[in-house]
Design a protein around this nucleic acid. Structure first.
Lengths: 117, 117
DNA sequence: CAGAGTGTTCGATGATCTGCGTACACTCTG
DNA sequence: CAGAGTGTACGCAGATCATCGAACACTCTG
């Protein structure tokens, strides 16, 4: 009964999990700076158009290298906008919309409403 | 009837008037970057607490020199947040709240609501 | 185990931003 | 007109940021 194949995350993960920041502890300045970058705006918009844990880090269409992309994800985590979870070799993402909306009402919807040029 | 003393602005002003940008033409990124700076947040909050054309540029309590302050006003004008008008030797300010709110609903109130640390 | 796939970390680089001091322009007042 | 008051323009320094290439770590598959 305990020898099930570990399908998803954890089990015996030897990877350091991503560092998260709760939206309640995020300063307004941090949130504004995170959402001001055009690449991060694209990431947020694509995340909003997908289901939770649907998108892996490499599945986003942005014109930057994976090193830069990794950095952007780090900024979004620190801003309380992104939650990540390891699933096998991939790292899945979730937009923390409810929590972030509770902290900064209307801000995320403003970014989602304005289409990218 | 035409020889009234010119009390306020213009008349025969030999000064180049400030350059403004209409909030309708401001990009979201520009607005977010303008509001992300702590000094500019203070300026916006103090302006919101005063009547239109009540405050001159030098009347704000921010820990920067007047050269830096002038630069911040320029950024706020480009973001569609500030309107300025010359009145004698002074330059008076007005927060463009209605216009800015129409362009980015809720954004300005978010900044005004979060008190400075 | 070897290899492909995924993602992070580490410098280095170039751009941008904030801040300052100085010099300058304009306005009003004595 | 001389001077004080107000604000801008022009560099210049320091900090921060976005970006990249290369190296590394972990996971799954053949």
């Amino acid at each position: 009964m305990a020898a099930q194949t570990p399908r998803q995350q954890d089990a015996a993960s030897h990877r350091t999990p991503p560092v998260h920041t709760a939206p309640q502890e995020v300063a307004l300045e941090t949130a504004l700076l995170a959402l001001a970058d055009p690449v991060r705006q694209t990431l947020v918009r694509e995340l909003a158009g997908a289901a939770d844990w649907e998108r892996s880090c490499g599945s986003f269409d942005v014109p930057v290298t994976k090193a830069t992309l990794s950095r952007h994800f780090s900024v979004l985590r620190e801003a309380g906008l992104l939650e990540q979870r390891d699933a096998g070799a991939k790292r899945l993402n979730r937009l923390r919309k409810p929590e972030f909306d509770a902290r900064f009402p209307g801000l995320l919807d403003l970014v989602l409403g304005h289409a990218a040029p």
